[in-house]
Amino acid sequence: MSGGQRRGFVRDNGLTLFFGLLFVLALVGQVVSGVALYNAQAVADGVDRISTAQYLLSSDFAVDVAENWQSEYLQFFLYVFATVWLVQRGSPESKEPGKEGTESDEDQRVGEHARAGSPRWARSRGWRLALFSRSLGIVMGAFFLASWAAQSVAGRAAYDEQQLRQLQEPVSWVGYLGTADFWNRTMQNWQSEFLAVASMCALSIYLRQRGSPESKPVGAAHTDTGVEG
């Protein structure tokens, strides 16, 4: 790939690359701080310290990562489906009131209304079109369920480890699903995601960010809905 092609690739994929880099840096930061926190607690409990490699394979690291991932994917899963049927007048994150629902084939450019650049499955009918028409929500939902399941498995292992340190009985996976630890980990992430989405929907009615597609144009009326800057 030539220099010009590389620059073009970075420019065309800058948003994904930027947040991908932030993800890696934040994950590294989580590992460094997580090892320090784990070892500080290990010293207090009178057990052996662990290396960074051991921490990466630990249930503590796995559950911390999984519980954050599942809440993020839940946020997008619900948002993708909720915005099909629910509207917020004045928000660029919403369709205009009166356009609730899955919209017509013409609006969605499917079947005979597909255009030259439309994906192949958008031109088809039957299960292919039905699946492709909901593929974003389905994949987000699958990621949420997979990461939530991972959280429950890793969380149970971390919980049992703590139980054994305190000379208490470990619990089964089903038993862990009924513990306050599992639901506290879950709810503390869910509430923050729901608040963030609600805040974005409401604040974007009255506030602006020039040049951002997540904002209305600076001069747009507060009641304008579904327009991007």
Rank of each mutant, 00 (worst) to 15 (best):
M1A: 14
G3S: 10
G4W: 04
R7T: 12
G8S: 15
L15R: 11
L17G: 06
F18T: 15
F18R: 08
F19Q: 08
L22D: 00
F23I: 09
V31I: 13
L37V: 14
A44Q: 10
G46H: 09
I50D: 00
T52P: 00
A53T: 08
A53E: 04
A62D: 04
D64F: 04
A66I: 03
E67R: 07
W69Y: 06
Q70F: 13
S71R: 10
E72K: 14
Y73H: 05
F76H: 04
L78N: 02
Y79R: 01
Y79F: 11
A82F: 12
W85V: 15
W85Y: 15
L86C: 14
S91K: 01
E103D: 15
Q108C: 11
V110F: 02
G111A: 05
W121T: 06
G126C: 06
G126I: 00
W127F: 08
A130M: 09
A130V: 11
R134D: 04
L136E: 12
L136R: 09
V139D: 02
M140G: 00
F144M: 07
F144Q: 02
F144K: 00
L145N: 09
A146M: 09
S152D: 02
D160L: 04
Q168A: 07
P170S: 11
P170Y: 05
G178V: 06
D181F: 08
W183V: 11
T186Y: 08
M187V: 13
Q188V: 15
E193R: 14
S204M: 10
G211S: 12
S212A: 14
